[in-house]
Amino acid sequence: MKNHKIEWVILDAWGVIYTKRNFIHSFLYPFLKQRDPHIQEEELYKEYYKASRGSFTSKDFWESIGFKEEYPVIEQQYLNSVSCLDDHFLEWIPKFKEHYRVALLSNDVEEWSKFLLQKYNITQHFETIIISGEVGFRKPSVEIFEYFLEITNASPSRCVFVDDRLANLKASAEVGMNTIRFIRKDSKTPFCSEFEVGSFQELWHVLLNDSS
């Protein structure tokens, strides 16, 4: 990154802003298992994938897994049960905004993502928000990163993408973005990013030192 002045810091949601990287396993499956002991986690992933690509709405998702009559109450109950915002994000995001344009780029159901952003009152921290369920592309597809570059008119060499998943980082690097892996625990997966950080404080110092 030293050869390019960074303009955009693009953050993932799950695993970065939110402390849990797999919310289906951590929240959705346990929540629904209490209501239907026979529900299969694999089925949730399959139907969620469709909704997070914009193939159908959150209402369609609940109907597809057998909770048509419970919607929309069950969706409100589920989303209100989710508690995973990284408190340090609120501490450090003002510093980031002083020096960079900050964006959110996340795989999620459009309605769920917007609900959580409003729930935690963090929408205003992002100049641009791209949700897979809204635009029809999911990471690690390069199309979602190309879409970001198109709507912002940003130069990829002046963007740094922060994510916890290696496949997503590789895809962003393919379009020319700089990458930082955000990982809270040790991992045995191959290193592929320019930097690895474990907190927003570490992320801030990497960006600060690299621009100095």
Rank of each mutant, 00 (worst) to 15 (best):
N80R: 11
N80L: 13
S81Q: 11
S81W: 10
V82H: 02
V82L: 08
V82R: 02
V82T: 06
V82W: 04
V82C: 06
S83N: 13
C84K: 12
L85N: 06
L85T: 04
L85S: 04
L85I: 10
L85F: 06
L85C: 09
D86K: 10
D86F: 09
D87S: 15
D87W: 13
D87N: 15
D87C: 14
H88M: 14
H88P: 12
E91N: 14
E91R: 15
E91I: 15
E91V: 15
W92S: 01
W92C: 07
I93C: 04
P94K: 01
P94L: 06
P94G: 04
K95D: 09
F96W: 05
F96G: 03
F96S: 05
F96H: 04
K97I: 04
K97R: 10
K97N: 02
K97Y: 03
K97V: 01
E98S: 09
H99Q: 12
H99S: 13
Y100F: 13
R101L: 09
R101G: 07
R101M: 03
V102H: 00
V102D: 00
V102A: 03
A103D: 01
A103M: 03
L104R: 00
L104M: 01
L105Y: 00
L105R: 00
L105A: 05
S106Y: 01
S106I: 04
S106E: 03
S106F: 07
N107T: 08
D108K: 01
D108Q: 05
D108A: 04
V109E: 00
V109D: 02
V109M: 05
E110P: 04
E110T: 08
E111V: 10
E111Y: 08
W112E: 10
W112M: 14
W112G: 15
W112R: 13
S113C: 12
S113E: 05
K114R: 11
K114S: 11
K114N: 12
K114Q: 12
K114G: 07
